[in-house]
């Protein structure tokens, strides 16, 4: 099944580069979608189906759709970004090469040893139990903290979206005038 790994990696690499080099914003978003779906494919290859489906719903189906939706609202088809200046191209190229070198050296220096433990069966039940367990290796605290964070974000969004009383009455007055 090595061949699938190479196919997915090629898709990820090619479309990642295209995402940052494309001058049309919606094309960039679409390329990003391909990168995210190919990543989900890698997870499927690892037999980690739960995280793959999460990747598909959350990133491909959720975040990319929201990005595309906001692009639809704000930009017109004729808009495209200015080509980047030479200095910027060279500087960002150097930065990415340096980053790649750093990662590669760390990866190649590190000696990976295959685990001898038997593979853990990742079913939904064990994920759910450990997510809500407060014992060792339980995740109930992060789970609750994240839910509070999400609640705060939701309230914030509602407050921003909700018109204040004054404005609404003003607008109504304007209309009646």
């Amino acid at each position: 099944m090595d061949i699938m790994f190479y196919i997915f990696s090629t898709i990820i690499l090619v479309f990642s580069v295209l995402t940052v080099t494309s001058r049309k914003i919606l094309r960039a978003a679409t390329y990003l979608l391909f990168v995210l779906i190919a990543t989900a494919g890698l997870y499927f290859l690892l037999n980690y189906q739960f995280i793959a489906a999460i990747q598909l719903t959350l990133y491909a189906g959720g975040i990319v759709v929201l990005i595309i939706f906001s692009i639809l609202l704000t930009s017109h088809i004729s808009q495209s970004f200015e080509p980047v200046g030479k200095l910027k191209t060279i500087a960002s190229g150097l930065a990415s090469v340096a980053g790649a070198l750093l990662t590669l050296t760390v990866l190649l220096e590190h000696e990976f040893t295959a685990s001898t433990k038997p593979p853990v069966d990742v079913n939904m039940e064990s994920i759910g139990l450990s997510l809500l367990s407060y014992e060792r290796d339980g995740f109930v605290l992060p789970f609750e903290v994240i839910s509070v964070l999400l609640l705060a974000a939701m309230i914030g969004a509602i407050v921003i979206a909700k018109k204040s009383e004054e404005k609404v009455t003003n607008q109504e007055n304007n209309k009646s005038l």
């Binding site: 999460i54 598909l56 719903t57 491909a60 959720g62 990319v64 595309i68």
Partner: peptide, 8 residues
């Protein structure tokens, strides 16, 4: 999960 991709 996959049926949410179609809207794109």
């Amino acid at each position: 999960a996959v049926s949410s991709v179609g809207v794109v």
